[in-house]
Amino acid sequence: MASYAETPAITQNEYGKGNAWYVGTRLDHAGLSHLFDQILEITHIESLANENNELEITKRITEDGKELYFILNMSNDKRKLPDKFSAYQDLLTGKIASQTLKAWDVEILNK
């Protein structure tokens, strides 16, 4: 993948039924985005949000099959919620998800 001083800075190895990546370098936002895009393509995993939104989005599935999305704005600026989540409910407030997350705001969403 990438190298530094003729040694691998990022490596990918098959392990069991999956793959493992080792990142032995510090990547900027563009480099991480490029790496994650490649990993998503190789593993055929669909991204949780196709819009560039600069939010941290994590999906968890409960034992009863409910999908929960943890949306974190880890910045000092407001960030727009991806359109995909516009009709979801925020479990923290009981209301429809806010379309803009304030700085350092969190929403836990489900349909």
Rank of each mutant, 00 (worst) to 15 (best):
S3Y: 03
S3R: 13
A5W: 14
E6L: 10
E6N: 10
E6K: 08
A9I: 05
K17H: 05
N19R: 14
N19H: 07
A20L: 09
W21L: 04
Y22S: 10
T25V: 11
L32P: 10
S33H: 15
F36I: 13
F36M: 13
F36D: 03
D37P: 05
Q38D: 15
L40V: 15
L40R: 15
L40C: 13
E41M: 12
I42D: 13
I42A: 06
E46Y: 11
S47K: 12
A49S: 13
E56Q: 14
I57G: 00
K59T: 09
T62M: 04
D64Y: 12
G65R: 08
K66P: 09
E67I: 05
L68C: 04
Y69I: 04
F70R: 01
F70W: 02
L72Y: 05
S75F: 02
N76P: 08
K78W: 09
R79C: 02
L81D: 00
D83E: 09
F85K: 02
A87T: 08
Y88I: 00
Y88Q: 00
L91C: 04
K95N: 07
I96C: 09
S98C: 08
T100D: 00
L101A: 01
L101D: 01
K102A: 08
A103F: 12
D105T: 05
D105G: 02
